[in-house]
């Protein structure tokens, strides 16, 4: 609890402030705190990844470098809403048979957004003994 909140509650207890006045003051403090937090959130948003990179480098100097816009993942995921219900049921049933307990019907737009944003923290780095290297990351 901040000092300001504590002081307001103390004033209510002492009868110097009414509950309604205290409520107004507490709301004003909450608004101020929200404004203080917002620039940090914006700074995080600015770091949002735009692309997924898949880089494969073989020891024989054969290289593959793919840059996939994350917007493409979003657009692709939007197509899940176009899957007919019968096909969706079949997909869910097959996934459950394979031991994947996941219902595509429960996939919400916010979940997809969270999933894509959390990809920024993902990095796959595979090095083989032969000197081949596979790297998948988002930036």
């Amino acid at each position: 609890m901040t000092q300001e909140r504590e002081r307001i509650l103390k004033m209510v207890a002492e009868g110097k402030l009414t509950v309604a006045e205290a409520d107004e003051l507490l709301e004003a403090i909450a608004g101020k705190e929200q404004r203080d937090v917002e620039p940090q959130t914006t700074a995080v948003a600015a770091k949002k990844a735009k692309y997924m990179y898949v880089k494969v480098a073989s020891a024989q100097k054969d290289n593959v470098d793919v840059r996939i816009p994350l917007g493409l993942l979003r657009a692709g995921m939007r197509f899940t809403s176009l899957i007919p219900p019968q096909a969706m049921e079949k997909i869910n049933h097959t996934m459950q048979e394979k031991g994947i307990s996941f219902d595509l019907n429960n996939l919400k737009k916010d979940d997809i957004e969270d999933l894509i944003q959390n990809l920024t923290e993902m990095e796959v780095n595979v090095n083989s003994k032969d000197g081949d290297n596979v790297r998948v990351y988002c930036e």
């Binding site: 735009k50 692309y51 024989q60 100097k61 054969d62 290289n63 593959v64 470098d65 793919v66 840059r67 996939i68 816009p69 917007g71 493409l72 979003r74 657009a75 692709g76 939007r78 197509f79 809403s81 176009l82």
Partner: peptide, 24 residues
């Protein structure tokens, strides 16, 4: 909805890059 999804998919293709180099 299909039209909008297709338009979104086409727009999202911007920035896609595939580079394959085979020195061997």
């Amino acid at each position: 909805t299909i039209l909008a999804a297709c338009a979104g998919l086409i727009s999202a293709l911007k920035g896609l890059r595939v580079l394959v180099d085979s020195k061997s």
